[in-house]
Amino acid sequence: MNIFRLTGDLSHLAAIIILLLKIWKTRSCAGISGKSQLLFALVFTTRYLDLFTSFISLYNTSMKLIYVACSYATVYLIYMKFKATYDGNHDTFRVEFLVVPVGGLSFLVNHDFSPLEILWTFSIYLESVAILPQLFMISKTGEAETITTHYLFFLGLYRALYLINWIWRYYFEGFFDLIAVVAGVVQTILYCDFFYLYVTKVLKGKKLSLPA
């Protein structure tokens, strides 16, 4: 465990909590893509099946349980409790265009052709693109609430910190996971445009709105 990995995990946790609190406090999930949140719930479910097969550490187990529980709570708030505020008309990204190719790829390119490993690979690939419905929704409506941009910032920062963690681990532990690294690079690149807008607009006190 190095500082980049730890801050990455905490950044991920911050993102998840920010989103949950935003929805809970405002009693509304306006501007949030339920499809992205469903994909993240699927990501955590397929990745953390190893909770049943291997124990890494108390930290590892607790964080996995927290991530899974929070992602299901978020999906529940969007599709059940605050369903009336869910902006489904703008959440029109076709998720099958992500899930089907990612599913196929995880069968073709993986570390080991075993059920759990294929599901882990699927979750890594799916996570890298799971934010696309949310970004698509923002590009469609042309704006995002500031709190939503904080969520996106921490969610993007998390994988960027993991990239530094992987460089660190490569040099100091000889650890290298090509699948995670390539997917992590793709995932981080998808946030670059958003990071630019976040720094140039939101951090200067302006609302994130896109030119028409």
């Binding site: 990995r5 890494i56 590892n60 075993s114 993991y162």
Partner: peptide, 10 residues
Amino acid sequence: HALNIPHDEL
């Protein structure tokens, strides 16, 4: 053959 490859990251 292990049941799965241990992944220590989240």
